[in-house]
């Protein structure tokens, strides 16, 4: 089942005489349960693409469908609500809310939605991620790896359509990176979660089921040709 699809997605920035084409006609599709990485160098447009996939940035042209719904057909408020129910985010800088403890951070999107927390489910995630002892701890007491695990748990807790991970190991050492990536993949597989991960690291990209290369705002094939 198709979870995510883009149609001729473009993002142009007006700068000087000619516009900067950050994303220039991208068409991708992600099926449910897939672990996809989007790889590109700095300035390739991968972050811009990720922002549009998550509904955080408006495209100049083109559409993004999540579970068959055109997310840019919604207004901002509707899109935010849609996002908290359908998309889980894992950021490079962890981005936990400093005034909430671990458990509160994890269930935050659920409680913002006004729903009851599936405690059994959440505790299972916490357990798998090895954070049971730290449920009452504040983010300032956690290491980088621990914070990223909490971020992963937060992304999983709402049972989203897919998880968007933007360079999730960018701020971690190599060993911790391995652990975190392993957990991401494991929990994804366990809960049948679709994961789309952005990275510049080809080695990390290899752990995915499918790799999408992006260069100068275009998706390119393995042999370097643009995929229309």
């Amino acid at each position: 089942m198709e979870i995510l699809r883009t149609e001729n997605l473009k993002k142009y920035y007006e700068q000087g005489v000619s516009p900067v084409k950050a994303i220039d006609g991208v068409n991708i599709s992600v099926a449910q349960g897939e672990f996809v990485t989007i790889v590109g160098t700095s300035g390739s447009g991968k972050s811009t693409l990720l922002n549009m996939l998550g509904g955080l940035d408006t495209p100049t042209e083109g559409k993004v469908y999540v579970d068959g719904k055109d997310i840019f057909g919604l207004n901002e408020e509707e899109r935010t609500i849609f996002r908290r129910r359908k998309i889980g985010f894992v950021f490079q800088a962890f981005n936990l809310v400093p005034v909430l403890n671990v458990y509160e951070n994890i269930v935050l999107p659920i409680q913002l939605d006004g729903n009851d927390v599936d405690e059994k489910f959440v505790n299972e995630i916490i357990d798998i991620l090895g954070m049971t002892e730290k449920k009452s701890s504040m983010p300032n007491q956690l290491s980088g790896g621990q914070q990223q695990r909490v971020a992963i748990a937060r992304a999983l807790a709402t049972k989203p359509s897919f998880i968007l991970a933007d360079e999730p190991t960018g701020n971690l050492d190599s060993k911790t990176s391995q652990d975190v990536l392993g957990l991401l993949k494991t929990t994804g597989a366990k809960f049948g979660q679709t994961i789309i991960m952005i990275t510049h690291n080809e080695e990390i990209a290899q752990m995915a089921d499918r790799i999408i290369h992006i260069e100068d705002g275009h998706v390119i094939s393995k042999d370097g040709e643009k995929n229309e």
């Binding site: 809310v97 400093p98 005034v99 458990y103 509160e104 409680q111 009452s136 504040m138």
Partner: peptide
Amino acid sequence: TGANLSKKKKTNKVTPFSMARE
């Protein structure tokens, strides 16, 4: 950053107002 906050915190229901308080 919240570096000066306490180490542990009792878990409460998170609402915009409770976040404001914290």
